[in-house]
């Protein structure tokens, strides 16, 4: 180990990422998700309706088709709600943390001094609610980027400025 010294630090004294309280996404983002799901189901129902009108075989099973669509819709809504509740983010002094996942809880942590660039993305629906998505990229490949949706536009802009400032300082 040669001249390598390491100041004694107590592991238990270090700030712990796993016990932080995460900020949840903006409540309006739930509406955005619902609208997106609704648009998807409008397409799906249209398809099913066309099938019922033009195909005799499908017409015979109209009842099952409708039941299937309703079950699917309920499931998608439940999972979307769970997913919405489970997502959370924290901007700490030195890193950003994003948590997602229903079955598995995934947490991605990016230290600011490893951020390559930051982008703001405003989705079509989200724009009506004044929401934006903050995208944070690193040089680490697959799965190492963070995309936090459902942040108020002004706040997202502030976050972007903050991160850009941190990146600039390092250069």
């Amino acid at each position: 180990m040669g001249n390598f010294t390491n100041e004694p630090i107590d592991l238990s004294q270090l700030p712990r990422y796993e016990t932080l309280s995460f900020s949840s996404l903006h409540p309006s983002y739930w509406k955005v998700m619902v609208i997106n799901i609704a648009m998807f189901f409008v397409l799906l129902t249209t398809g099913a309706a066309l099938g019922i009108i033009f195909d005799a075989e499908i017409r015979e099973n109209t009842f099952f088709l409708i039941i299937a669509l309703i079950v699917l819709l309920v499931l998608v809504i439940i999972f979307a709600r769970l997913s919405f509740c489970k997502r959370g983010y924290v901007f700490r002094n030195h890193d950003v943390i994003y948590r997602t996942g229903i079955i598995a809880t995934n947490t991605v942590i990016i230290p600011y001094n490893r951020v390559q660039h930051v982008a703001l993305h405003e989705g079509f629906v989200a724009r009506f609610f004044g929401l934006a998505k903050v995208e944070i990229f690193t040089a680490g490949g697959k799965g190492s980027d963070i995309q936090i949706p459902g942040i108020e536009k002004d706040k997202a802009e502030d976050i972007k400025q903050l991160l850009m400032g941190k990146i600039q300082k390092q250069l």
Partner: peptide, 22 residues
Amino acid sequence: QAVSTSQLFWHKNLNIGSLTLH
């Protein structure tokens, strides 16, 4: 570059989970 951790919900009480270093 980045660290991610992952834990399945039924592994919570068993206290096991996965780690990915990017």
